[in-house]
Every structure is written in structure tokens, then in C-alpha cells.
Amino acid sequence: MFEARLVQGALLKKILEAIKDLLTEASWDCAQGGIQLQAMDNSHVSLVSLTLRSDGFDKYRCDRNLTMGMNLASMTKIMKCCGNDEIITMKAQDEPDTVTFMFESKNGDKISEYEMKLMNLDQDHLGIPETDYACVIKMPSGEFARICRDLSQFGESMVIACSKNGIKFSTSGDIGTGNVKLAQTSSVDKEEEAVIIEMQEPVTLTFACKYLNNFAKATPLSPVVSLSLSPDVPLVVEYKIEDIGYVRYYLAPKIED
């Protein structure tokens, strides 16, 4: 049997908001160590990799490894029934056909239960090699979301150029061009407000704005986002999820033919 209880149920709601527009369906792989999800969008341009460690849950039990294929639109409907301050418990039998979501109010006066049918999904797991990235940027997630939103008004693609002096995001389109430069922060009171660049060599890559905007839907999960870039390899955009895990997005670059 599988059971995972999360007092901060709002986290699971935010996680779903962060992936539901990229993926129509996904497999949640549950094991003793925790829950993992890896899935590509339909066009195979981006990939979501989610890890939730068992020790981050308030209660976690997984007797046998199981894979739960879920339609994320259906899961979103169910999560909308959960209040932001409610406790979420996910439950399933071994070899399940359904998963149950139980929502409890903080004082225990109200309990709602929703059972959702599971799907058999073909799994396209990708082996992602360990990479030493040429540039790793940590920056406020809200700033990244704003830059993606602002620049995507101008064009479909965004160029991210990272050097030791800073990062430049730029775009161009029919109405003109736009760019935003961020310098590395020299001193900050709060680490989450800093722009920090770890650079081995400068990198310039081009990405589709629509995916970056989709990744930015994870902003409520973390005040900080990290961008890892190397020449001619997919970008990694990572949001840590409190003490429980992370969501990482991989995005294939646009490359010259």
C-alpha cells in the first residue's frame, strides 16, 4: 500500500500548477525513497523532472514500488477542491487502478475524498547525463518570470548570454527588440535576492519563450531559480521545493541547421 501525507497541501497544488500546462499526462513513480515524475511535453522539446523525497512528507509509506499514470487535467480538477490550508493525503493499493486524494481541514472538522482513475502510460524515460555546466546562474525567481513575460511580447525566441560580468536576455521581433541585463550582485542582505553567476566559460544560447514562460509557473514554489547552461546542450531550470525536493525543467536549445 502507498500513503503520503503532506500537511502543507498547498505545495502539491503549486507543483501541479507548475507542470500541468506542459504535460497532459504523467507517471508518478512511487518508491520508498519518495515520488518521482519524469515526462516530456508532446513535442519532445522540454522535459519535467520532479523529485519529492519521502522524508519531506509528514507521513510516508510505500510497501511496493508503483507507477501511477495520471491525467493532469483530471488531477487539476481534484486539486481545485482542496483548500490552500488543507492537508493532503494520497493513497493507493498495490497495483492500483485508482488513487485517492484526501483533503483534511486543519482542525479536522472536514474531510473530503476524491478517487481518480489511473491510466496506463507508455513511459519514455530519458537518461540524462551528469553535466558540468559552463554557467550556473542563481537569481530571484520572480525576476526571471518577469523577464520571460516581458521579452516574450517581442519575439518567439530569447537569447540568454552569460559572461562573468552578468547575464543578458534579449529578443527581437516585428515591433522591435528588447533586452535585459543583470549584473552579478556584489553584496546582499538576503541571499534569495542575489544574482550569482558561477562561470567556467561564457555561453550564449537561444530558447523558445513559450517554454520559459511555462517553467516560470513554478515561481510560487521557490524564491530562487537556477539556470544551468552549456554550449549546445539543453538548459536546466531548477526550482527547489522547500525541504522536500525540486522540479527541474530541461529545454532543448534552438540551433543553427
Binding site: 519532445h44 522535459l47 530519458l126 537518461g127 523558445a208 530541461y250 540551433i255 543553427e256
Partner: peptide, 14 residues
């Protein structure tokens, strides 16, 4: 114009 690559060009299917 650069073309959009896919992840399958970079990562192996397992």
C-alpha cells in the same frame, strides 16, 4: 533562423 532541437538529440531513451 535557428531551428528548434528536441531533447532526443541530446538524451538517450532508456
Amino acid at each position: 533562423m535557428p531551428a528548434q532541437a528536441t531533447l532526443l538529440q541530446f538524451f538517450k531513451q532508456s
